[in-house]
């Protein structure tokens, strides 16, 4: 059905479509990040594709598993032709340099907050975004919490935490659920707290 969209993409963009696969009715194309906005605009405007609904945009961090480490994932749907497609673009080296990709806000307005969230969580820089700032975390937050190299137990409190020496037994200094972390192999050092 929407394999035709993949065919159209491959015939139109050729080598900029790095790989495609179709599984369980989902069609995926890994594309050249340089052509990100161009391909998106083509998918929206081409009458054969007519992707008029922006569904989702997020990123995945594959640190230590592949380079480039980030994979920006875009889901699109056509309300007219009743098909959908998933686009991926791989950006950024292991130190997250070069994690830049074109913003899709000029193509779909709905991409605005999705790209802000993706910037907030992964630090992906969307070039051409009208208002790229944090959307979930507070502006004082340093780092990008969903990156794999962000320490899982690192918190950045906005107010100074109270130190209560004589707390009740269930609520010791290490409350929370530290047993959930026993399988992690990073050290629980002082610099991460």
């Amino acid at each position: 059905m929407s394999k035709r969209v993949l065919e159209i993409l491959k015939s139109k963009f050729g080598d900029d479509i790095y790989e495609t696969h179709s599984q369980f009715g989902d069609d995926t194309a890994v594309v050249n990040p340089e052509k990100w906005r161009e391909i998106a605009r083509f998918l929206r405007d081409d009458p054969q594709c007519a992707m008029n609904m922006f569904v989702d945009l997020t990123a995945v961090d594959y640190l230590g598993r592949q380079t480039p480490r980030f994979e920006v994932v875009l889901h699109l749907r056509s309300m007219e032709r009743n098909h959908r497609i998933r686009l991926k673009a791989r950006i950024g080296d292991e130190d997250a340099n070069g994690a830049d990709i074109a913003s899709l806000v000029p193509v779909w307005k709905g991409a605005n907050w999705f790209e802000r969230e993706c910037f907030d969580m992964f630090g992906v820089n969307f070039k051409g975004h009208p208002d790229l700032r944090r959307i979930l975390m507070y502006p004082e937050f340093v780092g990008y919490p969903l990156r794999k190299d962000y320490p899982a137990d690192k918190i950045q409190p906005l107010v100074e935490l109270r130190n209560v020496p004589d707390k009740l037994p269930p609520f010791g200094i290490d409350e929370g659920m530290p047993f959930g972390r026993q399988t992690h192999d990073y050290p629980r050092g002082e610099e991460t707290n």
Binding site: L136, M137, P145, Y150, A152, D153, K154, I155, Q156, P157, V159, L161, R162, V164, K167, L168, P170, F171, E175, G176, M177, P178, G180, R181
Partner: peptide, 27 residues
């Protein structure tokens, strides 16, 4: 509110007693 529950992550306060004194905890 008592201890942060299972939200042991970057964004959740691990119990409001980190910020203000609490009289009664109801788990």
């Amino acid at each position: 509110a008592s201890c942060g529950g299972f939200y042991d992550n970057y964004t959740t306060l691990a119990g409001i007693d980190k910020v203000i004194p609490v009289d009664v905890y109801v788990p």
